[in-house]
C-alpha cells in the first residue's frame, strides 16, 4: 500500500459517503453525481487491488496478515457495485442514503486495511 494513495481513497470515500447520506435524507434520488462518486470509490479500490498485487515485488509488504488484508479488500470491492445496482433498480431517496452507507463503509475498511498493512504488530 502507498500511504498517500490510501488517504486520497479514504477522504474521497468519506466525502462521497457523507454527501450522499445528507442529500439522500434531503430527498434526492440517486443521480449521476452520487452514483458516479460511488463508482469513483470503486475505481480507486480497483487501483488499490492492482497496487496490492504488485507492491510486494517492490519490497512493500504488509506488516500484518496478508490474508486478512485480502479478505477486507475483496469484501470492499463487492460493496459499491451492489449499492449502485440498488440505486439503479430502486430510484428513491433511500437508495441515495444506501450509496452513502456503502462509501462510508469503504472509508472505514480502507482505513482498517492500512492498519493491517502498516502498523499491525501481529
Amino acid at each position: 500500500m502507498v500511504e498517500w494513495f490510501v488517504w486520497v481513497q479514504i477522504v474521497i470515500a468519506a466525502v462521497a459517503g457523507v454527501t450522499a447520506v445528507i442529500v439522500g435524507f434531503a430527498g434526492v434520488k440517486p443521480n449521476d453525481y452520487t452514483l458516479g462518486a460511488t463508482l469513483l470509490v470503486e475505481a480507486l479500490l480497483a487501483v488499490q487491488l492492482v497496487m496490492a498485487v504488485i507492491a510486494p515485488a517492490f519490497g512493500n509488504v504488509a506488516t500484518g496478515s496478508a490474508l486478512e488484508f485480502w479478505i477486507y479488500l475483496v469484501s470492499a470491492i463487492l460493496i459499491p457495485p451492489a449499492a449502485v445496482m440498488w440505486g439503479l433498480i430502486e430510484r428513491n431517496r433511500w437508495s441515495t442514503v444506501v450509496l452513502g452507507v456503502a462509501c462510508l463503509s469503504i472509508a472505514v475498511m480502507v482505513y482498517r486495511m492500512s492498519q493491517i498493512w502498516f502498523v499491525q504488530l501481529a
Binding site: S75, L78, I79, A82, A83, W86, E90, W94, S95, V97, V98, V101, A102, S105, M109
Partner: peptide, 14 residues
C-alpha cells in the same frame, strides 16, 4: 428500513 438493511448487510459481510 432500506438503509437499515444495507447497514445490516455490510455488517453481516464484515
Amino acid at each position: 428500513g432500506r438503509v437499515l438493511i444495507a447497514i445490516y448487510a455490510v455488517m453481516a459481510l464484515g
